[in-house]
Structure formats: structure tokens, C-alpha cells
Simulated scan of single mutants.
Amino acid sequence: MLPTIHKDYIPGAIGRIVELHAHYYSQLVGFGLPFEARVARELAEFCERYDGERDGLWLVQQDGNIEGAIAIDGAHAGQDGAHLRWFIVSDKMRCTGVGSALLTAAMEFCAARHYDRVYLWTFEGLGAARHLYEKFGFRLVHQQLGAQWGVEVNEQRFERVCQFTVSPSHT
């Protein structure tokens, strides 16, 4: 069965998104309990205050399982920009175009709400993700050493100034 993208929360989404993040980043860079707890806490808080007019959550489903996610937190979009968060795709869904489909859905949502800026925090060393962000017009605007995720990494902030076009550039 082909994967589908579902908008908004479904039961089990918080746990599965946390699980995907915990496993992937533990293997990649050694993130552990502080990272997993932070993802769980912040994602649960986001879901509790979720407003479908302002916020977005998209889930990739295949065979009844959640295999990817992305969120737009619009709570402070007017002042700081919309915050792209919890973008993850399972190992079996990587390199299938699902990540691009999730980013497209999120950026279309931002365009429909006329969010003039979208930002995300990540860290150096995630080449495939960075390539995808840059295809969608995100640019690195700040970096610093930090340990907000429990292990010291070179944290990076990417921003996209929106002109209300969504398609990735073909560079």
C-alpha cells in the first residue's frame, strides 16, 4: 500500500513521533534521555494547544503505521515566524519523496495563512535534510555550539522568507 499523508492528530501520534526521533538521533549522534524527554514534552504541549487555523501537523501513514511527521507551530508566527518542528521520516520511508511531500504540505499551509517567515532549528551534519530545506528556500541564518538536546552540537537556525510560492527550487 502506498503511503498517505494525514493532516492533524491521530491516536498514537505523539508516542510514534517521539519514538522516531529518539531512535534516529540516538543512533546518529548519541542523543539520549534529555532529547527524548524534551521532544515528548514539547510535542505533547503543542498537541494540547493545537489550533487547526494556526498550527499544522501532518503524518505519513503506511499500512496503519505512522512513518513520518512534520508540524508548523504558528503560535508566534506574527512576531517570530512560524516554527517548523518535528520533521522526521522513518528509515523505510527515506529517499521515497515523502519528506518532500511533507515539506510541501507544511509550506502550502504557511502560504495559505500568509506567514511571512518560517524557521527551524537543527544541527550541522544532517546533509540530506539540509539539502531538502535549501530546495524549499530555507537559508542558514545563525549557528552556535550548544547542548540543548543533551549532546554538544553545532546548532543551526534556518529561515525561509515566504513569497507564497511553495515548490522547491530546481537548483
Score class of each variant (00 low, 15 high):
R49I: 09
G30C: 07
V89E: 02
E108L: 11
F87A: 09
C47M: 12
Y119N: 01
H83G: 00
F109Q: 01
S26K: 12
M107E: 10
E36M: 09
G15V: 05
G68E: 04
A71K: 02
L132K: 03
E53C: 12
G32C: 07
H76A: 13
V60P: 01
T122P: 04
L140T: 08
L20T: 04
I5T: 03
L120V: 05
A111Q: 07
V60L: 13
W121P: 01
Q62H: 11
L84M: 14
G56T: 01
D51H: 12
Q62E: 14
D63M: 09
S167N: 12
V166S: 06
G78D: 13
T96Y: 03
Q61R: 13
G125E: 07
L140F: 09
H76L: 13
D63E: 15
G99I: 01
A82S: 07
Y50K: 08
S167P: 09
W149A: 05
P34N: 10
Y25C: 01
I10M: 11
L59C: 01
Q148N: 15
V151W: 04
L59N: 00
R117Q: 11
Y115L: 05
E67D: 11
I70A: 06
I5D: 00
T122D: 03
R139Y: 10
D91K: 13
I88F: 02
E48W: 10
A13S: 12
L20G: 02
F35A: 00
A69W: 00
I66P: 00
A77Y: 04
H21L: 05
V89M: 10
Q62P: 06
M107L: 15
A147K: 15
L43W: 00
G97P: 08
Q61G: 04
L132C: 11
G32V: 04
E124A: 14
W149S: 05
D55L: 03
I66H: 00
R16K: 14
R117S: 12
H170E: 14
Y24W: 12
T96P: 04
L20S: 02
F31P: 02
Y133F: 10
A105H: 05
A82G: 11
R94M: 09
F46E: 01
H170C: 12
V153N: 05
Q27N: 12
L145E: 15
H6D: 02
R117M: 12
Y115C: 06
I5V: 11
P11A: 13
S167W: 12
W86D: 00
G68C: 07
E19I: 06
V141E: 14
L120W: 03
W121E: 10
G150N: 06
R157A: 06
Y133M: 04
A40T: 07
R41L: 11
M107G: 00
G146L: 06
A106C: 06
